[in-house]
């Protein structure tokens, strides 16, 4: 983990507990591709979006105090995601949302949007995430995995980093 990612956006609206209500933190990572497995790193194609590199990583969180524990012990019900209309609002650069749902609702397979039942699917893999977490736990238990001192903390809410919308400029 070497830096914040290009789409790191810490100053988004948050819940009382400080959990971002929309996409916020991203990471820049470095690693030796030749030691990686297609189990966790895969070239993918997302229809309507383009090509993508799908990465599965495990990040250990050292529980050093109660505050870190509180932020690490977050339940699905406490994580919110905006419902975005990708047919109209998003491609036109409108930021309005159709509502907010939490991850427990999303994982149930059905959410209610404007009174309508809408089936849900994910894009990231919980099954893979659990598998990675187990591997990492095993490495830590066997003493095969060590933490290094951070050089610098990631930019947080106080950093003042904000996003600018990319507005299309019509050709005159």
């Amino acid at each position: 983990m070497v830096w914040n990612g290009t789409q790191h956006n810490p100053a988004v609206p948050r819940t009382e507990k400080g959990i971002p209500r929309t996409t916020a933190g991203t990471l820049a990572l470095i690693g030796d591709l030749k030691q990686m497995s297609p189990k966790w790193l895969r070239g993918t194609s997302i229809t309507g979006y383009g090509v993508n590199l799908t990465v599965g990583i495990g990040v250990p969180i050292p529980i050093l105090n109660e505050e870190i524990l509180e932020h690490a012990a977050i339940r699905d019900e406490e994580i919110y995601a905006p419902v975005v209309d990708y047919s109209r609002a998003y491609p036109n650069g409108h930021s309005e949302i159709l509502g907010e749902v939490n991850y427990a609702q999303l994982k149930s397979g059905v959410i209610t949007v404007q009174g309508k039942q809408v089936p849900t699917g994910s894009l990231s893999s919980y099954a893979k995430a659990r598998e990675i977490a187990e591997i990492l736990k095993d490495w830590i238990k066997k003493g095969k995995f060590f933490l290094t001192e951070p050089v610098q903390p990631l930019p947080s809410v106080e950093s003042g980093i904000t996003f600018k919308w990319l507005r299309e400029r019509p050709i005159a």
Binding site: R42, G56, K107, P119, G121, S122, L123, S125, A127, K128
Partner: peptide, 19 residues
């Protein structure tokens, strides 16, 4: 990778997920 994106689109529930 069991990402489940295909689950809601399947009209006959041939693709399902163990929640």
């Amino acid at each position: 990778t069991h990402c489940t994106v295909c689950v809601p689109i399947c009209p006959t529930k041939a693709i399902t997920v163990d929640r």
